[in-house]
Nucleic acid binder design. Structure first.
Lengths: 349, 349
DNA sequence: CTGAAAGCGCTTACAG
DNA sequence: CTGAAAGCGCTTACAG
């Protein structure tokens, strides 16, 4: 392997000068710089990351932390697999462009496991930055460990509005409100909600958005049922909402899995979707795209969020073209209308 | 950060002894070993990977090489996203268990880009091993660069039966033959084939398996149409196969996308699947699971293959329990029967 | 604008 | 069974 000494010798300068050129430091004569670069290129020189990391303050490594159990489950089920892939899609291009490497690190939630795993990660890799995906983004021990190690980190879609680290928040309330707006625009006036597990912040935010939007349109909720983000809970909640006399003409579920469960409940009751009942979900999961009818949903801007996180960690003092980060600081959700929502049926009661 | 010096000082030994204990080298008194481990644990010591890599011969890094364009496309489409996720699922657990880190490295196919990218990867990271996914697994330049750098590498599902590196092959012919066996068992005697792009080795292997299985059952192909692995080509090929007078009662497509295209062609002709026509695919993609009717397909054992690759790189001289690798050396495909295949219609011509 | 020295935290020979 | 010395390939102060 060719080292910095080889380049220095060939170029007739000291290794320090080569180092300056490679790191784009100032105070190098332009001709020297060009010459060194030419020699490095000719020799096929590429700096050794371990040496750089050991001697300097940068490792050129960004670690993406994901919950071990959840991630392995997602990969195995090949269903919710989207999430991490979207993160990778967002993180990878800016990292590649800046010569950074991305490490997906699976960390267990159990504190007795998490503590040594995170400490080993930080000590072994000394990553220049860590990106926390939910639920790690709100784990007190995780935040504490990173904070103590003084490792820069970004929390993707945190549920807590404060705490350490850079937070890249998602405006879930606005997204939920947007979905209500979509249903109202179709003509619906009786809209029910299937709420997610109340212990999740996302679930509360989505309910908040739902209620605010209804108020704005001077409507009352046509029933609220509580689920836990699973298909089965959506099935039960759907049955409950649709069992009454004045059933809603549209139901907004806090995630796609529950929306699909609700769709099954509607089918069981002989209701056609969307002719008799409109159903909307949240997440734009694979299931939403492949369902029959396909499910109207709202897509989290995860790719943009992850890209912003990577750029914030790579360029702590502002992106090269700083304007961009600002514009994607709080990227918007995207409403994806599909075949499960339509105008309400004409009244016949 | 606590270093090996801190541990050595606290334990009252030299750093070399600490190093021996940590690397599980022989020639350490049992009491010394226990004491050092206790001190290391108490201090929360974790070795710095950069220092280990720089000083020693191991980096504890496994790089998974994937084609840049294809991977970004897959991630963006959120459709073929399965592939890399399956690889990650296979590679991650053995690496975690052995203290290795996994890096997904996107490499461009263009030689002018590939050469510096691969060289930089090898020089910067000095990975202990590289896992090549298709099509990199058969790229001559890629193989040459890795071979020259003397980096151990594994080729997943290579199409060429020889060349450098450890090859973990898939028996695609056997998988195709198995699918034909499934159709024959259902009662089909007139089975057509939609072949994939002939420039892919996989396509040839699958056709070979198809023909061998038919021969074994003393049947003739009921038509062979050539596609290129795309939905559209499957649509066209299906129309061609089904347009004749003595149409097949079952069609085996060399991948799921073409099978789904063929299904559309059948629908367009008013043929019900599977009542009038059985259709089988290959890959067990997400589309197969969500299609209507769901598509019978065959699943590549990618997870097992990737796990075997990781273990081969982590334990070059045999897995700790060496028996296991042998058993997954050539893991079998899994036939996944779904609703697109059934008994043939009763003859009525 | 350029360079000589020291040191990052380990492992590799080598010596005892 | 244990340790002192050298060195991996860079960057960090510091000097000129």
């Amino acid at each position: 392997m060719v080292t910095i000494y080889d380049v220095a010798a060939q170029a007739g300068v000291s290794i320090k000068t080569v180092s300056r050129v490679l790191n784009q430091e100032p105070n190098v004569r332009e001709t020297t710089r060009a010459h060194v670069l030419a020699v490095a290129d000719r020799l096929g020189y590429h700096p050794n990351l371990s040496a750089r990391s050991l001697a300097g303050s940068r490792s050129f490594v960004i670690a993406v932390v994901a919950d071990a159990t959840l991630t392995l489950e997602h990969w195995r089920s090949e269903f919710g697999t989207d999430y991490l892939a979207r993160i990778q899609l967002g993180v990878t291009p800016p990292c590649r462009a800046a010569g950074y490497h991305v490490l997906i690190e699976l960390i267990d939630r159990d504190p007795a496991l998490m503590r040594p795993q995170v400490n080993a990660l930080l000590a072994a890799l000394r990553p220049d930055g860590v990106i926390l995906t939910p639920p790690s983004a709100d784990d007190p021990l995780m935040l504490d460990l990173l904070d103590h190690a003084a490792t820069p980190f970004v929390r993707l879609g945190p549920e807590q509005p404060d705490g350490p680290g850079l937070r890249l928040a998602l405006d879930e309330a606005a997204a939920a409100a947007g979905m209500v707006g979509h249903l109202v625009a179709l003509g619906h006036e009786r809209i029910g909600l299937i709420e997610g597990a109340p212990e999740y912040g996302s679930s509360l935010a989505r309910r908040r958005g739902f209620e605010a939007a209804l108020r704005e349109h001077r409507l009352e909720p046509a029933g609220i049922a509580v689920g836990d983000y699973t298909y089965d809970s959506g099935l039960r909640a759907g049955a409950a909402l649709l069992g009454g006399r004045f059933r809603p003409t549209a139901i907004f579920a806090s995630n796609d899995d529950m929306a699909l469960g609700c769709m099954a409940a509607a089918n069981a009751l002989g209701l056609a979707v969307p002719a008799d009942l409109s159903i909307a979900g949240f997440d734009d999961s694979a299931g939403a795209r492949f369902a029959s009818p396909s499910l109207t949903s709202v897509r989290q801007p995860l790719v943009e969020l992850a890209a912003a996180a990577a750029e914030a960690l790579i360029w702590p003092n502002g992106t090269p073209d700083a304007g961009r980060l600002g514009t994607i600081d709080r990227p918007g959700f995207v409403l994806v209308p599909r075949n499960s929502t339509a105008a309400p049926p004409r009244r016949h009661w």
